[in-house]
């Protein structure tokens, strides 16, 4: 009997999701025994043409990490979709846009101007910018086109499953492999994590959610046993799906929302605005003004990982849109 085939790919990514797969440690050998890994750019030598030569849906499981922010990533997402039975958005970037999606607060032109002209180390008086096509003596060199807007994988192709996290924890990765191997993958569309919020998993003592001040993590040394939100530190726990093992809060840092919105919440950032503003105690305009001052960057704080997946998706573009 032929072994099932697995593919992995990294798009607009940092590499951390691939490292997380390596963090399955010796179980990676079990995975390699159970299935043939037919494509994995960071670790194996297969090229795009190998994928193109595969029959459609011959890849049984594709773990796609990273967001989509250029034409090559979009093309490979479509290619892998065509060749795969099951497509998994692996990690916060593929699921929600992740950190790269913070680029949705700006535009390609602004980025280019900053990177190639304004940045203090740039020496570019000729105002040379990268081009999608450059003619040189020997022929032509091309580059993928960079989009204005960063997208989630599901905004480009159909996706069967979502594994959130930055990066996904090893136990969830192994659970997915197990479910796949035993033919017990859940109904299509499932997000493979907890069905509750992070708060449900968190073991810190919770009393009453009422705060009079908001502090940024560096401004106070919090009690390691009490709920961070109750101590005035913005923790995204109430509007974040659980299942991560509460790793950040256990390190005394607040949750930043990398598991995305919990069931029933469409827009994670909006939910956080609602939650944080609700628990803030105010006696009048002065208190409200102080709250606004203390939350220095609401968009960045509440949409840190979820910009591409939010209802607004991006900051308004200057005039019309160039691409996606």
């Amino acid at each position: 009997m032929t072994k099932p085939k697995i593919a992995l790919y990294w798009a607009a990514a940092c590499g951390g999701c691939d490292v997380a797969v390596l963090d399955t440690n010796e179980k990676i050998l079990d995975i390699a025994n159970l299935a043939d890994i037919v494509f994995w750019p960071v670790a194996l030598d297969f090229k795009y043409h190998h994928v193109e030569e595969m029959a459609d849906t011959s890849i049984d499981l594709c773990l796609f990490n990273g967001a989509v922010r250029n034409s090559e990533q979009e093309e490979i997402a479509r290619l892998l979709r065509a060749k795969s039975k099951v497509m998994v958005a692996f990690g916060a970037c593929a699921c929600f846009g992740g950190i790269p999606a913070l680029g949705n607060f700006t535009t390609r032109d602004e980025i280019f101007e900053r990177v190639y002209i304004e940045s203090p180390s740039s020496a570019n008086e000729n105002r040379t910018f990268p081009q999608t096509l450059t003619k040189v003596e020997e022929g032509e060199l091309d580059l993928p086109e960079m989009f204005d807007t960063v997208m989630t994988l599901a905004q480009v192709v159909d996706v069967e499953y979502f594994i959130p996290g930055c990066p996904p924890p090893v136990d969830i990765i192994l659970k997915v492999v197990d479910l796949f191997a035993s033919g017990q993958l859940p109904p299509v569309g499932a997000i493979i994590a907890s069905d509750k919020t992070l708060c449900d998993e968190c073991e810190r003592t919770k009393e009453e959610k009422k705060i009079a001040r908001i502090y940024r993590p560096h401004q106070i040394i919090p009690d390691p046993n009490r709920c961070l939100l109750e101590q005035g530190i913005i923790c995204c726990g109430p509007a974040t799906r659980g299942g991560c093992g509460v790793r950040c809060v256990k390190a005394n840092m607040p949750c930043r929302g990398c598991f995305g919105p919990p069931p029933g919440v469409i827009d994670q950032g909006a939910k956080l605005v609602s939650a944080i503003a609700s628990i803030y105690q105010s006696d009048g305009q002065e208190d409200i003004n102080r709250m606004l001052e203390d939350i220095v960057d609401p968009a960045g704080t509440f949409y840190r990982f979820g910009m591409a997946d939010s209802m607004l998706k991006r900051k308004s573009l200057p005039q019309g849109e160039r691409r996606a």
Binding site: V19, N25, P217, H218, C248, A251, M253
Partner: peptide, 30 residues
């Protein structure tokens, strides 16, 4: 694999996560 795992364990313990650790902040570590 084991020795790479040891190194990741140490980072996990100190940093919260080995990949994308969260323990650094202005003033020190958490």
């Amino acid at each position: 694999i084991k020795h790479r795992a040891y190194a990741q364990d140490i980072q996990n313990t100190i940093g919260g996560k080995a990949t994308h650790p969260v323990f650094g902040l202005p003033g020190g570590i958490s």
